[in-house]
Amino acid sequence: MANADKVRVNREIRADEVRVVEPDGEHDVVDLEAALERAREHDLDLVEIAPDAQPPVCKIIDYGKYRYRKQKQEKRQRKRSKSMQMKELRFRPRTDDHDFDFKAGHARRFLENGNKVKAYVQFRGRDIIYKDQGMDLLRRLIEEVQDIARIDQAPKMEGRRMTTVLGPHKNK
């Protein structure tokens, strides 16, 4: 509700001239005092709707109802926006087949739930000479989940890690 808190009402409006939108839809540019007088005549508030416009746009409405509608709208938007988490899977260059299958199953489940998966191969000590095995491991993972995932970041080296990021397909 941060946006509704920043809205200026009645005497908080700082402009000398404003574009007033009446309750019946009529609008024209008048000085602030005339706009406040019109709002008083209608027994409503003068609410600054578009402060960045030249001149600022103000509407004669009930401020309480305006805030209520704004809150409902923001709540609907938050409900619609799906939060996506980043799940991580760690491999070593010589990860065994059973362990790989187990972790690939985890990746599949994460992707089906709409989360992104960051898979990485951690190289320790002399493991760094097995970069090709790490690349093969990540490619196998990509092939394993390609029916439900897209590649957000291709496999690449980052220090002593080789990472890739997979995301769920948009149509799911």
Rank of each mutant, 00 (worst) to 15 (best):
I129G: 02
R124K: 13
E143A: 14
R139M: 12
Q133T: 03
K118G: 08
L137S: 08
V121S: 06
A154F: 10
Q133H: 07
A149T: 01
K116V: 08
G125N: 02
E144N: 13
D127I: 02
D147H: 12
M135W: 10
G134N: 09
R126A: 09
R139T: 11
I142K: 01
R140G: 04
V145G: 07
L141V: 09
D127P: 01
D136F: 08
I142F: 01
Y120V: 03
V121T: 07
G125S: 00
D147T: 12
Q133R: 14
R124A: 09
R124I: 06
I142L: 01
I148Y: 07
D152A: 13
Q122L: 14
R140T: 06
V121Y: 03
R139F: 05
D136N: 15
R126Q: 06
I151D: 07
M135T: 10
D136A: 15
I151H: 03
V145S: 11
D132A: 14
R124W: 08
G125F: 00
V117R: 13
L141I: 15
R124G: 08
V117W: 05
Y120S: 08
I148N: 04
Q133P: 01
F123Y: 00
K131V: 15
R126E: 10
K116D: 08
Q122I: 12
G125Y: 03
V145T: 08
K116L: 06
G125R: 03
M135L: 15
K131W: 07
R140H: 09
I148A: 03
M135Q: 13
E143W: 11
Q153V: 13
I128K: 12
M135R: 15
I151G: 06
R124H: 11
E144T: 07
R140D: 09
D127M: 02
Q122K: 10
A154S: 08
V145N: 09
I128D: 04
A149C: 01
F123M: 00
K131I: 11
L138T: 02
I129D: 11
D132M: 10
L137H: 09
V145F: 10
Q133Y: 09
A119W: 02
I142A: 00
Q122F: 12
Q153Y: 09
Y120L: 15
V121K: 02
I142Y: 00
R126P: 02
L141E: 09
D136T: 10
E144S: 12
L137K: 12
I128N: 03
R140L: 05
E144G: 05
R126L: 07
K118T: 07
Q133V: 05
Q133D: 12
A149D: 03
Q153R: 14
I129Q: 13
R126H: 09
I129V: 15
E144I: 04
I148G: 05
V117D: 12
D147G: 06
G125K: 01
D132G: 06
E144Q: 13
Y130N: 03
D152V: 07
A119G: 05
L138A: 01
I128A: 08
Y130V: 01
A154H: 10
M135H: 14
L141T: 10
G125V: 00
D132Q: 14
D127V: 01
L138C: 06
Y120G: 06
Q122R: 14
K118F: 11
E144Y: 13
Y120I: 10
Q133A: 11
V145W: 11
I142Q: 00
V145M: 11
V121A: 05
Y120T: 12
L138N: 04
G134S: 07
I142T: 00
R139W: 06
F123N: 00
F123L: 00
